[in-house]
Simulated assay, not measured.
Amino acid sequence: MPQPVIDIRGTSRTYGEGPPALADVNLTVWPGESVAVLGPSGSGKSTLLNLIAGLDRPSAGSVTVDGLRVDRLGEAGSAKYRRARIGMVFQFFNLLDDLTVTDNVLLPARLAGVPRAEARRRAAELLAHLGIDRHTAAYPGTLSGGERQRVAVARALMNRPALLLADEPTGALDTASGDDVRELLTGLNADGQTILLVTHDLRLAEACASRTIELVDGRIVRDTATAAVAR
């Protein structure tokens, strides 16, 4: 039986004397699943994402991703983990405007020490697969929002991560570009990519997610299969 991509056990996170941002959360995500995390502002969505990404540590419990205890990693280990095992897509793309599309996509491979020729082959493959190979020499500022998010997804997939984390990936996009990104994520999941996305976009969750998790006051109050399972 395959091991889970995400295995969170009894995990809580508190800050100071206030109520917990996360309270005794248990969550398992299996290979090939696409899970949407929903909830109002302050529900713990960003805290959960940061714990999975190794950007924060739990106050109690464990966070295991792709067989690695993320909560036990130091700063250098966390950085290596993010390079090698996860890809991250953000609401505002986080592309470097002074680098071309190709150089933005190549950046994770360069940080990971991937040989130059191999990295360039991988970048070309991703850009073609995501339909943006005509923009290889362009700069991000000349692209539409949907195109920039495609570049960000290509960069996130560069090192073949076990898990793709997407934080409000349609939040800064117009309707047409949002539809474009929804189709992109749906296609990636259909190809077998495991995805966890945090979103307020119900259309995105309904289109892309095989499960929907709802957080309220740091607790999972709902964990249900979605219609996307039958797709």
Rank of each mutant, 00 (worst) to 15 (best):
P2S: 15
Q3H: 11
V5H: 01
D7K: 04
G10N: 09
T14P: 00
G16T: 13
G16M: 08
G18A: 15
P20A: 13
P20V: 06
P20D: 00
P20C: 04
A21S: 12
D24S: 12
V29L: 06
W30L: 12
P31H: 01
E33V: 05
A36Y: 00
P40G: 15
S41Q: 09
S43D: 07
G44I: 03
K45A: 02
K45G: 02
T47R: 08
T47G: 12
A53I: 07
D56M: 10
R57F: 06
P58V: 14
S59I: 14
A60N: 08
S62V: 05
V63R: 04
G67M: 11
V70G: 07
V70L: 13
R72G: 13
R72Q: 15
L73N: 08
E75D: 14
A76S: 15
S78H: 01
K80H: 10
Y81L: 13
Y81R: 08
R82A: 14
R83A: 10
I86H: 00
G87V: 03
M88P: 00
V89G: 02
V89D: 03
F90E: 01
F90R: 00
Q91I: 04
N94P: 00
L95A: 11
L96N: 07
D98V: 01
V101P: 15
V101D: 13
N104W: 03
L106Y: 05
L106H: 05
L107K: 04
L107T: 13
A109D: 02
R110P: 00
L111Q: 06
A112D: 15
P115Y: 09
R116P: 14
A117T: 10
A119S: 11
R122V: 02
A124R: 12
L126Y: 01
A128W: 05
H129Q: 11
L130Y: 03
I132C: 13
D133M: 01
T136N: 06
T142Q: 10
T142E: 13
L143S: 04
S144T: 13
S144Q: 11
G146N: 04
G146F: 02
R150W: 00
R150G: 01
V151C: 06
V153K: 02
V153I: 14
V153H: 04
V153L: 12
V153S: 05
A154M: 04
A154I: 00
A156K: 09
L157Y: 06
R160H: 10
P161R: 03
A162N: 06
L164K: 08
A166C: 14
P169C: 07
T170M: 10
L173C: 13
D174M: 11
A176M: 11
V181F: 01
V181W: 01
N189T: 05
G192I: 08
Q193I: 07
T194V: 10
T194E: 08
L196V: 15
L197Y: 06
V198P: 05
V198I: 15
T199H: 09
H200V: 07
D201Y: 12
D201F: 12
D201Q: 13
L202R: 15
L202M: 14
L204A: 09
E206Y: 07
C208R: 01
C208S: 05
A209M: 06
S210H: 15
T212L: 04
I213Y: 01
E214I: 13
E214M: 08
E214R: 15
E214G: 03
L215G: 09
V216M: 07
R219D: 05
I220Q: 03
D223L: 04
T224K: 10
A225Q: 14
A225P: 02
T226I: 12
A227S: 15
A228C: 09
A228R: 15
V229Y: 06
R231N: 09
R231F: 07
